[in-house]
């Protein structure tokens, strides 16, 4: 464990807290992509299958359960719970996620760390996480302006994998034979997708005023 990875996990937890607060207190999922939340649920349920046999640390096992539970709860609330379910707009949030899941599944089959079913599913979840934010970014693009809490949610989510990139650099230089090309590649793509958002987020928050984040 190092500070970058710890801060990354804290940023990830913060993103869950912000989103759960927004949809439970604000009683609205407006501006939130259910498609992205469904992809995250698939990512965590597939990646953390090793919960049952890989106890690398209590910290890891605990957070795996937290991430599966939170992502499932968020999908449940937005899909089935009133009044949030009525605030979800399927016309707006209509990114064809099958075009994300399909290629990631093929990539997981072809490029993985071992030819066991779990390694293929694990690689699939790594690739899928890299692109899971796309429906959310497309939704924000359509709406032009980003609600304040939503902008903090996306910023925390982007920061989490960005901090993981620093963690991988740190581990590469401090540990011998540390090699994780799959997550390095996917994590770079994932963080890259946020660069445009981060630029507008920074511009809107720079003046200290909480001007709304505007996406062109």
């Amino acid at each position: 464990m190092n500070i970058f990875r710890f801060l990354g996990d804290m940023s990830h937890i913060l993103s869950f807290v912000i989103l759960l607060l927004k949809i439970t207190q604000g009683k609205s999922a407006a501006g939130i992509s259910l498609r992205t939340q469904e992809l995250y649920m698939i990512v965590f349920c597939s990646r953390y299958l090793d919960l049952f046999w890989n106890f690398s640390s209590l910290y890891n096992s605990f957070l795996k359960v937290v991430f599966i539970a939170c992502s499932s709860a968020i999908v449940y609330i937005i899909r089935f719970k009133s009044p949030q379910k009525d605030t979800w707009n399927p016309e707006l949030d209509n990114f064809p996620i099958q075009y994300l899941i399909g290629p990631c599944a093929v990539a997981g089959l072809l490029i993985n760390q071992d030819w066991t079913p779990f390694e293929m599913i694990w690689a699939f979840s790594i690739y899928l996480e890299a692109v899971a934010i796309l429906p959310q970014l497309f939704l924000l693009q359509k709406q032009g302006e980003v609600e304040n809490l939503t902008s903090h949610y996306v910023a925390a989510l982007g920061a989490y994998r960005g901090l993981y990139l620093m963690n991988w650099v740190y581990r590469y230089f401090t540990e011998d034979d540390y090699l994780q090309r799959i997550v390095w590649f996917a994590g770079t793509v994932q963080t890259g997708l946020y660069i445009d958002f981060f630029y507008h987020y920074y511009q809107s928050k720079r003046g200290g005023l909480s001007r709304p984040v505007k996406l062109p």
């Binding site: 996990d9 090793d50 890989n54 690398s56 640390s57 071992d114 694990w122 963690n167 994780q180």
Partner: peptide, 10 residues
């Protein structure tokens, strides 16, 4: 083949 690296990250 060589064992895949341990999965010690989330």
């Amino acid at each position: 083949g060589n064992k895949p690296p341990a999965k010690d990250e989330l």
